[in-house]
Design a protein around this nucleic acid. Sequence first.
RNA 1: GCCCCCGUAGCCCAAUCGGCAGAGGCAGGCGACUUAAAAUCGCUCGAGUGAGGGUUCGAGUCCCUCCGGGGGUACCA
Length: 989
Amino acid sequence: MSDRTTTSNETPFRYTAQMAQDIELSWQDRWEEEGTFNAPNPAGPWAEPDKVAARGEKLCVLDMFPYPSGVGLHVGHPLGYIATDVYSRFHRMLGRNVLHALGYDAFGLPAEQYAVQTGQHPRKTTEENMTNMRRQLRRLGLGFDNRRTFATIDPEYYRWTQWIFLQIFNSWYDADAVRPDGGLGRARPIAELVAQFESGERPLPGGDTRAWAQLSDAEQAKVLEGYRLAYTSEAPVNWCPGLGTVLSNEEVTNEGRSERGNFPVFRRNLSQWMMRITAYADRLADDLDRVDWPEKVKVMQRNWIGRSAGARVAFPVTLAAGERAGSTTDIEVFTTRPDTLFGATFMVLAPEHPLVDSLVPEGGWPDGTHDDWKGADAEASATPQAAVAAYRLAASRKSDVERQTEGKDKTGVFTGSFATNPVTGQPIPVFVADYVLMGYGTGAIMAVPGHDERDFEYATKFSIPVVRVVAPSLDEADAPLADAYVGDGVIVNSASDVADLNGLGVEEAKARIIAELEEREIAEGTINYRIRDWLFSRQRYWGEPFPIVYDEDGVVHALPEEQLPLTLPDVPDYSPKTFDPDDANSSPEPPLSRVPEWVEVELDLGDGRGRRRFRRETNTMPNWAGSCWYYLRYLDPANDTAIVDPGNERYWMGTWPTPVAGAPAGTKDPGGVDLYVGGVEHAVLHLLYARFWHKVLHDLGYLESEEPFRKYFSQGYIQAYAYTDARGQYVPAAEVEEHPGGPGEEPTFTWGGQQVFREYGKIGKSLKNSVSPDEMYDAYGADTFRVYEMSMGPLEVSKPWETRAVVGAQRFLQRLWRNVVDEATGEVVVTDDAPDQALTTQLHRTIQGVRDDFEDLRFNTAIAKLIELNNSVTKLGVAPREVVEAMVLMIAPVAPHIAEELWSRLGHSGGVAYAPFPEADPSKIVEEQVTCVIQIKGKVRDRVEVAPDISEDELRELVLARDKVRAATQDGIRTVIVRAPKLVNVVPM
RNA sequence: GCCCCCGUAGCCCAAUCGGCAGAGGCAGGCGACUUAAAAUCGCUCGAGUGAGGGUUCGAGUCCCUCCGGGGGUACCA
């Protein structure tokens, strides 16, 4: 495969892999020495305003933060980096000041797991991995500003991660505060909330009438906890014994397992750090309109946030048990269909609903209770208390997985109580059933079997009346319902002395009933969200320590900013306490809790109370923390007084005067990174968390931009074939031989003579189909590898790696090389003669096409156009300098090393990195003749050469006079469609 | 089940506004170079666009139904 050995004595100057390597290494050294890709900053410690002024508009290009894997890169990993590098280099040649840098996301579970597996300290393995990855990427010739690199594990970086945590901790969300843009709601310093409590402007929550100063420290802390954007809370969380840590909702699959490692996850009540991302739910959903992202990812985020408009409605009920037995209270439900309130014939509470106990009467069932309502457990069905207790116990023992896998078969038990439908006044039975979830809405529903599929199933199974309140038309008001009718229509059977909705449309009825019931204080229009607060603590070693201590009363204190960073201590045993993955009753044990000399400290927090004893927080942050803001640090990595100088943030990420394409009219641009490229797997994790932090920092006045990523492009993956033998074991894919099948048959595959079976999917060491970039550098060189990856197809689609196809990219570069350099003598062989008309036209058309393609990230078609142009030049035998130089500049973003070399051999000093990109001359694109296609009834029947500026009338006449057209139109002409100059379609009678 | 995306040559992919189905690459075939092979170079073969229907003068492109592949989501009231 390598032609390293094929450089014969006759062609010592051929562009071989060896030649490519020599060229590439020497230019990489030169770029590094000269700091070619360093981007000047307008402000901060590196301020070079003169250099900034000397360049054109800024452009901030970003790749998703890589995690330095222990096994090194495979050929799929650099795809996005090459794409962003091509885009960056293209824009440098257009004169823009381009910032492109790469750092490392080095904290977190994978790094720690790799260290545990190899029995080494995570810092050691992580640093080794980063060294290897840096080497692999440097060899690829990426034009990063290497001054701007860092890793999340650097104390000088995580100092600021901890600082941001403190800003969030010391903030609350004031939903009534007016933002500069006129919207409502923003984060404010917690001190301003304390001031409101102190002055009495804001009453204490829960009807507490004491003055703020009368509260103890612990009581004050408790109150503030209810407001802080980062807070501890005792709540049901996702405990994963197999990983020894808790996980956020976003890290748990819908099968109820950990996204990483696929271990079972259990719900446990534990005290954990949370981030109040729910406060930002509206803005996170609304502002998706303002960014240029793939629609698919926007939809995924909107679904995750899960905003739905509806109403909270109170259903009165008389308590049947408990201290307040006999008194009346309300069961509050959330519904998106208040228009169907008249059709609510029963209610359902989640098994965990706190009201259940007081709804179940002592003694027997109410007279006439349907046997089906008493529960599936015959032994427990004698009394409501026994039946409900049995049902709740059974439900509590079910995992989320079991609840789901049991499918749609509805189960439930009657509580023995009836509530009152507030609009009909009718008593309706209240059930406990596990198809209602405590975690959504109020954990209780009004069930409308006529117009909700789940309620219909339940009503059918338990013989509950079904009432139609929506019909396709008034005529069908009493048509029987064979299924829940969920379509649009007109409201029927919905009148009482409370309200009359009959005849209204669904949307009108919703508005009407909410208005009526709000007046009576029975309901209120409301918005409900699916998103929950973000669980932020992990019981692992390899993460940022929280800058938090607890005093002897258990009150939370933030470390003063001057005491940051709080460094991660070196510990003898950094591995997590391991558990049986299925042991739901295990409890997390953070490794840091095993270091008492670090945990128990005496500190002066600078609060005037002197040195006191404290206990440190022993949880660590999730690896999302470091990746939530790294893009900001690239802008000003050496700044030790701020996360980023405001001048740098405004310059690199500030808002543009015009909004992104496709934004609604009147939209204000949110600013942010100009191009962000990465895989879609972080659609609701990293991309949502980073947006949240960015908005908090914006609210607190640290950032001008409102979004982190103005344009996000989701790249496809490079995948590969893998092969298994008869036992299902993977065999080395590189050694498999393909045998073509007969016509219409699949090919067959053998390895070492035995038949093997092909599958398609991810690249991985364990699948034995991994190809490393290093192998490509050795066999072809980095430029060939770059050209191949960029020419495989559109950046956004996934496509299969095919090593044997890489040679096509090499042949192209060889042909380009040969057009400039004589393989035998090394002499430059271009001619100074001007290209002919046809080649000139092709050149300028190519320039225009390549510019457009690069701008729109269509690198595959740009390369195809360059191959075409190069092929035209090759056919001439001798290459005109004008065309060759333009080609060298145009290929430079994709294949920068060979371009530098050829550019220099063509007699230019100064390099191609900042050479101006060729400009198309529109006057030279115009051809003297164009081919006009003549269609008869839509089928191509003739062609004619015409002038490009021929008029429609001239062309029509010309075409109608042609023999073939006259022959076809002897019976007359129905119509003639003229699209001058390229097409005429004649339709005969 | 629901929602979204994608089906063009043996394979990866072009066709930008509804206007000649083919730009580019791989593989295959033939030829040149070679003692021979590899590499290289030149030439060349190759689909009617997943299936069916519709709109249109004209459909890969727009609409409907179905089939196949991928992704998201799943009792979210």
